[in-house]
Computed example of a mutant assay.
Amino acid sequence: MSLTDQLMTDIKTAMKSQDKTALSVIRMLKSALMNKKIELGHVLTDQEEAQVVASQMKQQKDSLADFQKGGRDDLVAQTQAQMKVLQQYLPQQLSKAELQQIVQQSAAEIQATSAADFGKLMKTVMPKVRGRADGSLVNQIVKAFLQ
């Protein structure tokens, strides 16, 4: 079942159960997927769908940080609930050990050995893990590997 089909089924379920948070998040995600499809001009691949979901999750994380700084506990709780719904649609995230292995393999491919190779290594690693790992975690692992 494609992600779009899954979203349609989940919208119906959320409507029946009157779960307003889930319904709004699923509709937002469906809209983001449709916008990306229009932007690219073709049906989205699984990887492109995962990127859209990851982008939505990153936006929620950024909002959460802002709300916490501002002391808006009501919005913090709401954003956390929205993130919980979005989490269902994210692909299985790579573990730290799996990321380290991908970084090591990529470094061997391009023969990256020093901090000067950071940019090249990131360019090689990110397409391999896009949507399945947080960019900041990849950044930390690559920095640690090159030191």
Score class of each variant (00 low, 15 high):
M1Q: 02
M1D: 02
D5Q: 05
L7H: 05
M8R: 09
T9W: 02
K12T: 10
M15A: 11
Q18R: 13
Q18I: 07
T21V: 15
T21H: 08
V25C: 06
V25M: 14
I26N: 06
R27W: 03
M28V: 01
S31V: 07
A32P: 02
K36Q: 11
I38P: 01
E39A: 04
G41N: 10
H42I: 05
L44Y: 05
D46R: 14
A50K: 06
A50W: 07
A50C: 03
Q51I: 12
A54L: 08
K61Y: 14
D62E: 08
D62M: 13
L64M: 10
F67C: 04
Q68N: 05
Q68D: 06
K69R: 11
G70F: 05
G71K: 08
G71Y: 11
D73T: 06
D74M: 10
D74G: 13
Q78A: 13
T79F: 12
T79Q: 14
Q82D: 02
Q88C: 06
Q88F: 01
Y89N: 05
Y89T: 04
L90G: 00
P91T: 12
P91A: 09
L94Q: 02
K96N: 03
A97L: 12
A97N: 03
E98M: 06
E98L: 07
E98K: 09
L99I: 15
L99R: 02
L99G: 05
L99Q: 01
Q100K: 14
I102L: 09
V103L: 11
Q105Y: 03
Q105T: 14
S106H: 08
A108T: 12
A108G: 04
E109N: 03
Q111H: 15
Q111G: 03
T113V: 09
S114A: 05
S114K: 15
S114L: 10
A115H: 12
A115F: 09
A115E: 12
A116P: 00
F118N: 02
K120G: 02
K120L: 12
K120N: 09
M122T: 05
K123D: 12
T124Q: 15
P127R: 04
K128P: 01
V129W: 04
V129F: 07
G131N: 05
R132T: 01
A133Q: 08
S136Q: 09
N139I: 03
N139L: 09
N139S: 01
Q140N: 02
I141E: 01
K143F: 11
A144D: 15
F145D: 00
Q147I: 14
Q147G: 13
